[in-house]
Each structure stands twice: as structure tokens, then as C-alpha cells.
Amino acid sequence: MIEILSSGALNSVQDRGRRGLLSSGVSRSGAMDILALDAANALLGNDRDAAAIEVAAFPFRMRFDVATTVAVTGALAEAQLADRRLPPWWATEVHAGDDLTIAPPTAGARVYVAVGGGIDVPLLLGARATELKSGYGGHEGRGLKRGDRLPLGRRPPGGLPEGGIGAPPPPGRTEADGPLRVLPAAEWAEFSEEARERFVSVGWGVTAEADRQGCRLDGPELMRERRRELLSHGIVPGTVQVPPSGQPIVQLAEANTCGGYPKIATVIEADLWRLGQAMPGDALRFAVVGRDEALAALRETAQWLDGLRKAASLYRVS
């Protein structure tokens, strides 16, 4: 078991989310920065579907009842395990009774804390992810609070070397102020040339209306040349909608599964984590790419994770 000593309601149990239930209106949910979650599980030798804690409210403190392993990835934040300061994107052994404290990030919004064997809350609709918006899944369908005790899965065999192991920077992490890559979406051509030009040339401010469901952006109005009501249609995380106000909203992990607003573009899957790490006041830029580049970026991420998983397994002591 682990025990939560200090938390905010935005901290929740998350895994890779629910698949195959969009047609029942069940959002994907899951980690906002899936790459960071995947990396944490890879470092520990966990199943890729293992659940971790997504920390978005700080400081966060928890205690381990048992000796196990822990990995901390995602936003750059001071992580203190017992009397040790952990380097970023690090995995290490923990002793029973150790406390882990995560301070507010210096860069990024969400830290991932994965534990050997994963957080073993019940599977619901195929996943352990918390759906905060609808109040189901994860730990009692809600964010974590002080006194919550979470069961752990069976940790994989072998231990981590003394001092722990770290992950190299994933693709794109070091040039985090580059543009978010997008594919044009269904209504792209209905926006005026000026609107399309603005979309890719200005910096978009992340507003305070940014959560697991979506992120409203602030910038010049994007007008369509043809105004018509659309019939409701399926949407995915990453969809950039433009409501009649002309201010874009990027749909994220807990996005509604269908929407009715025009879609100018979709952020490619490989870059979605950046929206999970965006803070109000940050400026975002967009760049249009083609299918090939989007796919190449996804492959690059998958290969990086494969490499990390293999490297971590070499360090595991049996």
C-alpha cells in the first residue's frame, strides 16, 4: 500500500486510458502526458498498462508502507525521497516507511509517480484511469486526498541498482518551445486564408480554462468564410475546435467523444503530451505537417520507449 499524505483534488490515478468505448460516450481519459507515464513504467519494468499517479497539484506527499520501486517523470520538479533528492526522470528502490515529496514544478504542469507493479485500483471499463469529469474509475472516481490508501500490483522481478536509473530526454523534450505539429482537420479549408495564416503564425496564450478536458487558447479571432452549423461528430484528443467566438479550444484526455464545433486541425499524437504540460500563460505555436511526418514522429517516440525499456531491463538486478 501507499498512503497519500498531502494532495489536491487534481491529482489522480491514471493509466493509458480507455480504448474502444468512444461509441458509448466513454472518453479515453488516461495520462495527459502519456509519454512520461510510459517512460516511468518502462524504467520500472512495469506493464505498459500499469497505473500511476498524475500529480497536478503541489506539493504532493505520499508514504510507502512496503519496500518497492518508484519512478518520477513528467514536469521538472524537486522530488525528495526520504533524505535523497531524485534527479529528473529517475527510478529507484524505496524502503518501507519512506516518504516522497514533490514540490511545484519549475517547468511543466504534471508529474508522474509510478510504483513497481502499478497502482492496483479496480479495472473499470477496461482501465484504471480516473475520469474526473464524470466521476468514475481510478480511486473512487475522484482525485486523491490526504489519508487515501492505494493498493499496489505485484512488482516485476529484479531490483534497481543502488542510486537508481534515469531516462535520457525523450524526443522533442529539449526543444519544448518549438511548434505543436498539427494535421489539417475537416473544416480547415472553410477558414479564410487569413485565419489559416494566423493559426500557424501567432503565439497562442494558454488561458486559465485548461484542464484534463481541454485547453482554451487566447489569440486573434479565427473566422470561417462559410458559417454553418455542423452535425455532431466523433472527436479525438488533440482536436482543435473553433467555436463561434473564434478562440480555439484544444480537446484533451477527458474530451467529450463527440462535438459540433468546426475543427481547424488536430495536434498529432506524438506532440499531445506538450498540452498536458502547458501552464496558463504559456505561449503555443502550431505548424502544419503531413501524415508522413506525423507518423514518423509517432514511430520515433515508440522506438525511444522501446530502447528505454530494453536499457532499463539490462540494469535490473535479479
Binding site: P184, A185, G234, I235, T266
Partner: peptide
């Protein structure tokens, strides 16, 4: 027919 990102089509 349009792309909805890398892994979806509408």
C-alpha cells in the same frame, strides 16, 4: 473524408 489526427478518420 478527413484526417482527425494520426490515428483517426472522419
Amino acid at each position: 473524408l478527413s484526417d482527425a489526427g494520426t490515428g483517426a478518420m472522419l
